[in-house]
């Protein structure tokens, strides 16, 4: 397939997944805030921090309160990772590959964008945001389902899946970080504070509550971390996502399992294998935030390698001197 099309499909999926996860992050925080009355101000700032957008935020808003942060994360077109920007970008990418995806996929992305665009001018969303998140989440799931059942599971589909899996792994680590920033402001405190309600909120925001309960019963921080990071079967867990990403990457290159022929396969394989053979105790002991931070950096190098290997338009030799 065309390099440009592969690039667009990969980013189309990444942006949809990102939009869904930004919505999830806001949702988990809304829930936690309800449980922590009186600490409103300190509780919304961290969302901007983990999005890596503190500088941009402070130039545009004077205070990190609920309304400002939600506006920034959901509807601010100058924030490249806001929900509306993500859906706009997903839609532009979809438009660029409109001929290679199905009409149903395009129409679903278009519908989501039009919905968010319309909602952005509706002040009620700041008071009762729940419906907004729910519709976004369902919209994203619907897109995934449509992709699953209308698109041939060939190269393009694997690029979609690769982008989605990498984004989901990245976002899952950010979601865990929200909890870290809110409750555990310094590394020394790791493991000292246990709050059932708040960890439950983290699980719920990852649609992981019921599945976690069935597996572990009681809510314990290290088990939650283990579930969201290292589970092989839970579809929003990081390791699960990396395994799917690796499968799709191999389907694209044709490499056999356990082998690699390109830089992205090598880097993703190493990262996945580190996680495969990791214990949650080691992660907590070395510091969860530090671990997550390092993981995100390595994931970025995987993304860079994918770009270099598949998407960049390399010059062709010997044609136009």
């Amino acid at each position: 397939m065309l390099s440009r099309d592969a690039n667009s499909m990969y980013w189309m999926s990444r942006y949809i997944e990102r939009a869904e996860n930004v919505a999830r992050t806001i949702e988990v925080n809304s829930h936690m805030t309800l449980d922590l009355p009186g600490e409103e101000h300190t509780q919304w700032g961290p969302l901007v921090t983990i999005a890596g957008a503190s500088d941009l935020f402070s130039t545009r808003y004077d205070e990190a309160n609920q309304k400002n942060v939600i506006h920034f994360l959901a509807f601010d077109r100058d924030n490249p990772n806001s929900i509306i920007s993500c859906l706009g970008a997903a839609r532009e990418n979809a438009r660029a590959v409109r001929s290679s995806i199905t009409s149903e996929m395009w129409e679903q992305i278009n519908r989501m964008y039009l919905y968010v665009n319309e909602t952005s001018t509706n002040a009620r969303v700041f008071e009762s945001p729940h419906e907004f998140y729910t519709r976004l989440k369902l919209g994203s799931h619907l897109f995934l389902g449509i992709t699953e059942v209308t698109m041939t599971h060939g190269e393009g589909w694997h690029f979609c899946r690769l982008g989605r899996a990498l984004e989901r792994a990245d976002q899952a680590t950010r979601l865990l970080d929200v909890k870290y920033f809110i409750l555990l402001p310094t590394v020394d405190h790791v493991g000292l504070s246990v709050d059932d309600i708040q960890w439950a909120a983290v699980l719920r925001s990852g649609s992981a509550f019921e599945m976690y309960r069935r597996q572990y019963g009681v809510i314990a921080p290290d088990k939650v971390v283990e579930f969201l990071l290292l589970d092989r079967e839970f579809p929003r867990a990081v390791l699960y996502s990396l395994n799917r990403a690796e499968e799709s990457l191999r389907a694209i290159t044709g490499s056999l399992e356990g082998t690699f022929q390109s830089v992205p396969e090598q880097r993703l394989g190493q990262l996945r294998s580190d996680l495969t053979y990791m214990r949650v105790e080691e992660i907590i002991a070395s510091g969860l935030h530090e671990f997550l931070d390092n993981f995100q950096k390595r994931l970025i190098t995987v993304g860079d390698a994918i770009y270099d290997n598949f998407f960049s338009l390399r010059p062709v030799s010997g044609i136009h001197p």
Partner: peptide, 10 residues
Amino acid sequence: ELVEGSDLVV
């Protein structure tokens, strides 16, 4: 395929 000029090369 839908191509742009930059997708093509002689």
